[in-house]
């Protein structure tokens, strides 16, 4: 479904991606992790068409994304920082996104799930960070697209919402979707991810499931395995 070939990107003098090759063909939850500045965000933005690559090719669903913006219809994206037009209400924002995507969504179910009915007619500027993140999740997950990209989805969520989120992600996976997640919460990654993509200095340093990672690094603990990857690099 998603194919990334020899992706290069440079911001000024800073070479952020140095030839990334990746393929996500089957359904599954893929966690993209790596230290700060390793190129996670740039990779996702390149996939979303927000960053124009210097070299290399990206294709989604078999077609290159270079010239065509319509492929984004197949992607649901959860941005990291949720900041919406201050004077719209939650309800208006939801209907606006539905309108922009020209598709119906399952917003009712998600609104009920995250219990945000009381906020529906409030202005977005008056919401707390956690509520905004819930709205953000509703906006992302209400469409039924084959690819879901979640950038730090757990930020600001209370434990109950977090449980709902995990269930939702699993449900979506069960529908046969490709789900990409970036997160700094290793326990969340360990619990959810089928496969891990470890980026370091603009290259794919490791791709495989958690077991393979543990074996490769000789660590039984996931967090230690990640730390091990980093120290190997330092040596």
């Amino acid at each position: 479904m998603i194919k990334i070939e020899q992706l290069h990107k440079k911001f000024g003098k800073n070479q952020v991606l140095k030839g990334v090759d990746l393929e996500f063909l089957d359904k599954g939850i893929f966690a993209i992790i790596g230290p700060n500045g390793s190129g996670k965000t740039t990779l996702i933005k390149a996939l979303l068409g927000m960053v124009v690559p210097d070299k290399g090719d990206l294709s989604v669903g078999g077609t290159s994304i270079r010239k065509d913006w319509r492929y984004r219809d197949q992607i649901d994206y959860l941005p990291q920082i949720a900041n919406f037009p201050a004077n719209l209400t939650v309800k208006e924002l939801i209907s606006m996104i539905k309108d922009l995507r020209n598709r119906p969504g399952e917003d009712k179910r998600l609104i009920a799930l995250f219990k945000i009915e009381p906020f529906l007619s409030k202005k977005l500027s008056n919401l707390s960070g956690g509520t905004k993140q819930k709205v953000n999740l509703v906006l992302t997950l209400m469409f039924d697209s084959p690819i879901i990209i979640l950038d730090e989805p757990t930020t600001g969520l209370d434990p109950i919402a977090l449980i709902h989120l995990k269930e939702l992600i699993k449900e979506e996976k069960a529908k046969g979707k490709i789900i990409l997640i970036t997160s700094h919460i290793m326990s969340f990654v360990e619990e959810m991810a089928d496969e891990i993509v470890f980026l370091l200095e603009g290259k794919v340093y490791f791709k495989g499931n958690i077991e393979a990672l543990k074996t490769q690094t000789d660590e039984s603990n996931f967090e230690h395995a990640i730390a091990n990857l980093l120290t190997q690099e330092d040596v």
Binding site: G49, W69, Y77, N83, F84, P85
Partner: peptide, 17 residues
């Protein structure tokens, strides 16, 4: 500048830049 994040949300939607 104030609506930067919102712009990013829009950019991820199937809309022409």
């Amino acid at each position: 500048y104030n609506s930067k994040e919102f712009t990013e949300l829009l950019l991820a939607q199937p809309i022409k830049r």
